[in-house]
Design a protein around this nucleic acid. Structure first.
Length: 590
DNA sequence: TCTATATCACCC
DNA sequence: AAACGGGTGATATAGA
């Protein structure tokens, strides 16, 4: 496959846009569009009054055309707002540049300007770019001068995109580049749909939140006097400790250790500390105003595809509902007549490790349906007839050990985590080594590859540069996490292209929505496609998935989030919002 | 007063 | 030197 197949032309485009009504979370309002055919360098400029009259894009999007962009999910967001169809073939230079320069020592950022500098191509300055960005954001473009300035600026980005394309085209792995471009299209579809939020309740929460905080502090802090207004003051806490003769752990720097963990530890000796711990925890979980929710009650924000070094999406944790503390998920609620499903792969990284390493014992553990208990059995620590109920304590420890290995945890940290002597942690890690020796050899080989070649590959063309010092634990984890990201991308492609409405990706999970009468069927299809994606990436090895189902008028409330949600609803005087929260679990896979 | 750093809390 | 992978973001404190 090469570029000569695109006989209808290769078009670079760039939109300028701003959120509708200036409200983040709303769909974008398109300001202008510039299109250039890359070989003929023919350029076309369109202002929004022309664009809104078009029912299809002024460039070809069929099988014989190619769309070239820098961060094309944004361009396709605009196309969807204009109700245009999306291109069949898409090449995104941002995705390609991220892939080629991942963890490259000379590169810190990944803007278009950074890419142009990297290839020593001319750029407009950061200053002008920022100036134009603000002009567009603040509703500029009403005078002929401003309009020309915005179009010129938009055109300069297209010119830069074309230059970058011509510089990069000979080094691209085209089939995989088109695959990544196809993912950018799926990203745009998800960004366009967004996650349904109970907007009236969110607004109530927002309007009352400071009052709730003040109430909480006033009630609890009179015992301690450690707060000044709404902030916890270290020196005031120190005074309290001094007055009460409490010796508090300190960091190496000499400052008080204020970790939640430390409060937990000290609460065991001084029960009053527990009350302050709870107060601090509640207050730390208060990001209600930054969440992007449009006037239609949908949480929409940039998903930041390919942003992490393993290729994961990395949306802002304050703007994205799934980045907030988990009790906020109870704000997620299907629209009337609709349902939602949060579908996630079961023990994804364990399954990936088994598949990639070819460790048959590990594969068997995955296929058993309960890898943690299987590990305990395979190592001989519990009898073959042991169950989750009969050997709960053992299972918890073996589970902690499996997770520890995936993150490269050492025996000291594991001991702390499971609240056991170091010797016990050492014993568990040794059992993992012995039971899954093939996995460990494979894990060693990743470290060797990285050190010897200066690169570490994760399949489908994603890799990171490893010249210079890289943490060994990072190298061992990279193939598993990056492959997980690859499986998610493929599943997003399959499921969005099957016409299922995907609200959001969450690393090893997807939130989908459907009318209630179609919900069960669509969950089934989504799970089948998630299994398909895992097989396609893992050479036939299938990952199971589970689904939490939320049917209107239920909200998405998990066991973890329930206590805080109930507390907040009580304080808001809305105890009626507590009980509408049942979730079922279905499973799929072998 | 502003910025950089350290530390912490949250997510998977 | 530390020893838990990948992140974002808030806040307190220290220093310019």
């Amino acid at each position: 496959m090469d570029f000569s197949n695109f006989t209808d032309g290769i078009y670079a485009i760039d939109f300028e846009f701003r959120p509708s009504h200036g409200r983040e979370g709303n769909l974008p309002d398109t300001v202008c569009l510039v299109v250039t055919e890359v070989t003929q360098a023919a350029t076309y400029r369109y202002w929004w009054d022309e664009l809104r009259l078009m029912s299809s894009p002024p460039f070809p999007i069929g099988a014989k055309a190619l769309l070239v962009t820098w961060f094309g999910s944004a361009e396709m967001d605009c196309m969807q707002s204009l109700r245009w169809a999306l291109p069949l073939n898409h090449l995104d230079l941002y995705a390609e540049f991220r892939c080629l320069t991942n963890q490259h020592h000379e590169l810190q950022k990944n803007s278009l300007i950074d890419a142009l500098n990297y290839y020593q191509l001319p750029t407009i300055g950061h200053g002008h770019k920022e100036e134009m960005r603000l002009l567009i954001l603040n509703g500029g473009g009403n005078t002929p001068e401003e309009r020309d300035a915005i179009l010129d600026y938009c055109e300069s980005d297209v010119v830069a995109t074309v230059a970058l394309f011509n510089r990069m085209r000979c080094i691209l792995d085209l089939p995989r580049a088109l695959h990544r471009g196809r993912y950018m299209k799926a990203v745009s579809r998800m960004q366009h749909i967004g996650t349904p939020i109970d907007l009236p309740l969110l607004e109530l929460l927002r309007s009352q939140w400071t009052i709730l905080q003040d109430q909480l502090i006033q009630e609890i802090d009179q015992e301690f006097n450690a707060f000044e207004g709404r902030t916890f003051k270290v020196d005031k806490w120190e005074q309290y400790l001094h007055k009460n003769d409490i010796a508090w752990p300190r960091l190496d720097s000499g400052k008080l250790d204020l970790k939640d963990e430390t409060f937990d530890l000290m609460a065991k000796i001084y029960p009053a500390v527990e009350r302050m711990r709870n107060l601090r925890r509640s207050l730390s979980e208060t990001r209600v105003h930054d969440l992007y929710v449009g006037e239609d009650g949908r949480n929409r924000c940039l998903l930041s595809p390919f942003k992490s070094k393993t290729g994961r999406n990395q949306p802002s944790t304050t703007k994205f509902i799934f980045g907030l503390p988990s009790w906020f998920r109870a704000l997620i609620r299907p629209q009337k007549g609709w349902g939602l499903a949060y579908v996630d792969w079961s023990q994804q990284e364990f399954g990936i490790a088994a598949a990639l390493s070819g460790d048959e014992v590990m594969k068997e553990a995955y296929h058993s349906g309960d890898p943690y208990l299987a590990f305990a059995k395979q190592s001989g620590a519990v009898p073959p007839e042991a169950t989750k109920q009969s050997h709960k304590a053992e299972r918890d420890q073996f589970k902690a050990c499996v997770l520890a290995v995936q993150y490269g945890m050492g025996e000291d940290s594991l001991a702390l985590r499971i609240n056991q002597p170091v010797a016990k942690a050492r014993y568990l890690l040794r059992l993992h080594n012995q039971t899954y020796s093939v996995f460990w050899k494979w894990s060693d080989s990743a470290v060797n590859e990285a050190v010897l070649n200066g690169k570490l590959w994760a399949g489908f063309g994603w890799f990171m540069h490893t010249a210079g010092h890289v943490n060994e634990r990072s190298l061992r984890n990279f193939p598993m996490q990056a492959t997980g990201a690859e499986i998610l991308r493929l599943a997003c492609i399959y499921i969005t292209e099957a016409g299922i409405r995907v609200c959001a990706p969450v690393h090893d999970a997807l939130l989908i929505e459907a009318p209630l009468e179609d919900l069960d069927r669509q969950i089934e299809i989504a799970q089948a496609l998630m299994a398909q994606a895992s097989r396609d990436v893992l050479n036939g090895f299938e990952l199971r998935s589970e689904a939490d189902v939320i049917r209107y008028p239920e909200r998405y409330l998990t066991d973890k989030g329930r206590p805080m949600w109930e507390r907040v609803m009580e304080m808001l005087g809305r105890p009626d919002q507590i009980d509408l929260s049942q979730t079922d679990v279905t499973t799929c896979g072998d």
